[in-house]
């Protein structure tokens, strides 16, 4: 399984991940290598196997419906790159 540079660019865009133009080739090569490594999975017959999403066969625990969190805006927004009037600012969102 080999990934083309075009595919790498497409995935990088899906992941909104900037990659230097000159690195795309090496990413394509490395990612293809990883895909080759995982390729051996395809030879295993898993028709009867239930996928395992969690190590423990446990059930979701539920939280009581109570308000436990107060306003911590000032604390949280101290970490923000750009805020105004309590809002996080970003380049214009176009619908």
């Amino acid at each position: 399984m080999a990934l083309t540079t075009e595919e790498v660019n497409k995935i990088a865009y899906l992941a909104r991940l900037g990659i230097d133009e000159q690195d795309v080739d090496s990413y394509a090569k490395e990612l293809s290598g990883i895909l080759n490594l995982v390729e051996q999975m395809s030879s295993v017959n898993t028709e009867q196997v239930t996928p395992m999403a969690h190590p423990m066969d446990q059930v979701q625990r539920l939280r009581v419906d109570e308000v436990t969190e107060g306003d911590q805006r000032a604390l949280f927004q101290a970490q923000a790159p750009d805020v105004e009037a309590g809002l996080y600012l970003v380049p214009k969102v176009i619908d």
Binding site: I11, L14, T46, T50, P51
Partner: peptide, 25 residues
């Protein structure tokens, strides 16, 4: 990138789901 690819349409079953089944094994 690898994770994004493995979850994307058309590859999910072959990669992610198969990996989860092998995890069970």
């Amino acid at each position: 990138l690898i994770g994004t690819y493995a979850l994307s349409t058309g590859y999910y079953d072959a990669y992610y789901l198969q990996a989860q089944k092998i995890r069970r094994l």
